[in-house]
Nucleic acid binder design. Structure first.
Lengths: 219, 219
DNA sequence: TTGTTGATTTCGCAA
DNA sequence: TTGCGAAGTCAACAA
């Protein structure tokens, strides 16, 4: 990785046109040729960048970074304040926990959270327009499609609605009711869901994880 | 901005739990206290980070970055290979062109692109569930709601459908037809739209911009 | 290769 | 401040 601190102006021409006037910035050139232009603030997103695969051509006082699609990042260097190279090697990468997939696994193991006598038919129940997160049977044996989101927004309700419309065409399955389960449900999503007869359930991740621990403690 | 190259391991505990095993990485500490952990590859997104506002506490061999919500980024330093500080100053920032807002302005000024005798009623026509991008009248005086996207996907069709359903409840306005206008319309979105009687129009940004230039040339 | 969905999304605008 | 939609979204995963 090469780190250059320089007074520069930057122009991007590609999916849009963007210009950065002259200022001092950090230019990060990664081993794969990608370039990031960072200022001293903002979030993790660079002011401007070129994603790999791309190639950097260095001319005196000017860098041209171009990718296959013809998008260009032009960096005009006014003054280079620092230029250093480091060999970082390949990164072993990140391990995560706590995302939607985990929520799905947890709720699948504890469908009783949704109601007494509920049982799981299957996780990732296949339909022609995509898998339903959970297919369950409620206490009276009725089919229930459950859509799980970390944050419940209108899109999720629309998605579940499409599943329900399709599933209810199957006479062997119908009637299929719907449950929209999320850690947080936005008011507009809740209104739309309930207007369509879909039940909303707010999930408590820590509580589900707690039940998980309890289950382990039995052994 | 402070740039540290170090062999380190990183743990994030917050909205999720994530771990980075020992490796050589770039640690970028911005003036606002935010920290970015970059490897020599991947995209512009860091492997791990803490967004501002947050504060960094330096202990021997260990950095603790914490924000108000109690999310923590723990960096365990094994060996510091480089540590340098640069004064970048405040960045003047980015100017953009070519986004959806501009498309909306351009099409509003050239609704005739959509059909002969068409006129604009108003841009950002308000409804209880959000503003319709353009409300127009077609050559025969019929109301038309236009949804504009850069890339037309299913979400946009759903959105327009909700608007149309609502607008058609108003007897003074009904019947309201729909136009889904985008620079690019995905096949699935087109199928869904046309199935619902919504007309699809592919916009040519350069052509609209050209008409704009033509208009200026008249003066 | 293409499409779909999630994201510690981030970012910008408007109410 | 909050909420919502767009993003040069990116990235992972399935078809």
């Amino acid at each position: 990785m090469r780190l250059v601190v320089a007074r520069c102006s930057v122009d991007y021409v590609g999916r849009l046109t963007a210009h950065l006037p002259l200022a001092t910035r950090l230019l990060m050139i990664k081993a794969d040729g990608s370039v990031l232009v960072h200022s001293d603030g903002g979030s993790y997103k660079p002011l401007n960048w070129m994603s790999p695969p791309c190639r950097l051509v260095e001319e005196p006082g000017r860098w041209v970074v171009e990718n296959k699609a013809g998008e260009q990042l032009l960096i005009t260097l006014d003054e280079v304040l620092s230029d250093q190279q480091h060999d970082l090697g390949v990164d072993p990468g990140l391990t995560k926990d706590g995302v939607e997939a985990h929520l799905q696994v947890l709720l699948a193991e504890h469908v009783a959270t949704l109601g007494e006598g509920w049982s799981l038919v299957r996780r990732e129940y296949p339909t022609p327009i995509g898998p339903v997160d959970l297919m369950c049977r409620d206490g009276r044996g009725g089919s229930v499609a459950v859509e799980i989101k970390r944050r419940g927004e209108i899109d999720g309700v629309e998605q579940l609605t499409r599943y329900l419309e399709l599933l209810n065409r199957d006479p062997l399955l119908a009637p299929v009711t719907g449950v929209f389960a999320a850690q947080q449900i936005k008011p507009q999503a809740r209104t739309l869901a309930e207007d369509r007869g879909i039940r909303c359930v707010v999930l408590d991740y820590d509580e589900l994880r707690g039940r998980e621990s309890d289950a382990f403690r039995l052994f």
